[in-house]
């Protein structure tokens, strides 16, 4: 096992102890040449992180939140503000753990939320509009950047995953509704259509038909005798916040699990097959 001291002896110029004048590079012990390559490595990692999570997170959202995020006429007050943040907190929470635990970078959640929104709009343009001709109004997506920023800010202040789960996990779920309502409010204007009330969102979904998605497939609020009037969305927001507390912690742990550096023992035959000279086990 090489100790840190060994490396310091090799690589770190002796310098006066103390925080004054110290930089991350100087304390890391990287020489200028090594730092240059380390920066190149940074670029490569960022170049991997962006497309990897644009792909994996978007796929995850498409197949868990799916239609609620896709269509404006699925964005109801009961399920959309509940299902969407619960699913959309997963990757940001795991990324937060990966970036924070290993590198003390408080950006993981924001990275996840940002690449998701960008890649979602890219799909809306390249596929929804260019290929099938759906107007952009029909596919306005949700955004979780507001909640993700709050999660990262909570982490930098609290520096603790448990408190981040409790406070920022809740905040992530809770602010989903208000932070998206600002963008979507115009779509809930009422219109009269065939003698019945409809929201503009209903009308958009109706006017530009999705042949394979009949109206009844929408899993949206049906209302009950116990519905709390207009406050129903805030009830959904609070419930989403509650679930997001646990979801955040669960996925934080998954992010930590994914960061492990375990090497399983490889068989001697495979090793020698791959080019490793057999030698006595150390």
């Amino acid at each position: 096992m090489t100790s840190i001291t060994d490396i310091d002896a090799v690589a770190i110029p002796k310098r006066k102890a103390g925080p004054k004048g110290e930089t991350v590079i100087s304390v890391s012990g990287l020489t200028p040449g090594a730092a240059r390559y380390s920066r190149m490595f940074d670029f490569l990692v960022v170049a991997a992180v962006v497309p990897l999570f644009a792909g994996a997170f978007h796929l995850h959202v498409m197949l868990t939140v799916g239609d609620w995020d896709m269509y404006v006429d699925w964005k109801d007050r009961q399920y959309w503000p509940l299902v969407t943040p619960i699913s959309m907190i997963m990757f940001p929470a795991a990324l937060q753990a990966i970036f924070w635990v290993n590198f003390r970078l408080p950006i993981g959640a924001t990275v996840g939320a940002t690449v998701l929104l960008i890649t979602t709009w890219l799909g809306r343009y390249a596929n929804w509009w260019i290929w099938t001709g759906f107007p952009f109004t029909e596919g306005v997506p949700s955004q979780v950047i507001a909640g993700a920023l709050l999660m990262d800010m909570a982490l930098i202040v609290l520096r603790n995953s448990l408190f981040t789960s409790i406070f920022a996990g809740f905040a992530f779920g809770f602010v989903f509704w208000p932070s998206n309502y600002s963008a979507l409010a115009p779509f809930y204007l009422p219109v009269e259509h065939q003698g019945m009330v409809a929201s503009l969102a209903d009308m958009i979904g109706y006017t530009f038909p999705r042949s394979n998605m009949p109206e009844y497939l929408r899993i949206i609020e049906r209302g009950t005798l116990r519905t709390f009037g207009s406050s129903v969305s805030w009830v959904s927001a609070a419930f989403a916040g509650f679930i997001c507390i646990f979801m955040h912690q669960l996925w934080w742990q998954l992010g930590r699990f994914a960061s492990q550096t375990t090497f399983l023992k490889n068989g001697d035959v495979v090793k020698s097959f791959m080019g490793m000279k057999s030698r006595p086990a150390s």
């Binding site: 930089t23 991350v24 590079i25 890391s28 012990g29 990287l30 730092a35 380390s38 290993n102 970078l105």
Partner: peptide
């Protein structure tokens, strides 16, 4: 500076940096 230097610094217990 991101991944390698930050990780090295963290290993040295210098989170303050």
């Amino acid at each position: 500076p991101l991944f390698l230097p930050r990780w090295l610094v963290l290993q040295k217990g210098r989170e303050d940096l």
